[in-house]
Amino acid sequence: MSEPLLRIEGLRTVFRTSGGDVPAVDGVSLEVHRGKTLGIVGESGCGKSVLSLSVMRLVAHPGRIAAGRVMLGQRDLASLSMAEMRQVRGRDIAMIFQEPMTSLNPVHSVGFQITEAIRAHDPRASNAELRNRGIEALKRVRIPSPERRFDEYPHQLSGGMRQRVMIAMALACSPKLLIADEPTTALDVTVQAQILDLLRELQAETGMAIILITHDLGVIAEMTDEVAVMYSGKVVERTNARALFEDPQHPYTLGLLGSIPRLDEDRENLLAIRGTVPPPFNLPPGCRFNPRCPFAIDSCRAEIPPLRSIIPGHEVACIRAPVEASVAA
């Protein structure tokens, strides 16, 4: 495969607490390729948002990047100055969030906010030019009557429309990578389908790469090329989207797949995963999934299993994968 657009290497982001540094992202390595979508899936608190904020260098105190590199071409974003990083944001990498209302400013018009995003990277553009480009940006995200919407305020828009505005702002300077952190979680299913469709079309038009964060395996199957499954700050399985569903390896991935009801299958009981996610300040020894894992044995508690290649392009952090081989043995 060609040189990746973004390479995250051994990223560790910690939060300082009275009890010491607590890891939210703990040694994550990932690659994002041009024009492709990397999905990141996992339950609440596994570190998906902190990972994306780390790439954007938006982790706020008491959090900080403690180790690792975020390579965009030859540059390590983790070691850029804040001024240099401001140039990267918007132009190279842009981000959209789950709740568009909290990221849009309620006192400014839609048009003002979009043109601000353009002006930040092109300070010499005239007002007329900014307005044109802003309306153009609204058109690109298929907002009906963009001239009228340009002068409206966020509260006058529906949730789906607000998410379109967020996408328009993020794409205003044609970034190479869009990080979408649960962009449709707060939306109804028909509106979600509109937004997913839009992201796919925009990707085909622009060739941008996408990191799509979600907890919905349906969205993963529908949208992504490569997938990383996260648990307790670590990537536990990494492969292409097809293999994740056709050849799932990590017991946590199996638990997730068993937990979701399917439209195309009738099951008496869902598999579920017993117990709950451990808090980052009180992690179990060894494999972090071991207290919940039905396959756990003593050696699972001895040390943290590293990601290893099961077949080329498919990595799993479990000493017992593939489980049928170890259960039979």
């Binding site: 979600q192 997913l196 796919r200 199957a221 529908e222 949208m223 097809r242 195309d264």
Partner: peptide
Amino acid sequence: AIPHPDPSRKGRVTP
């Protein structure tokens, strides 16, 4: 509009 957890049906979601 429901995305299915099945990549062989990718692209079938119609908004």
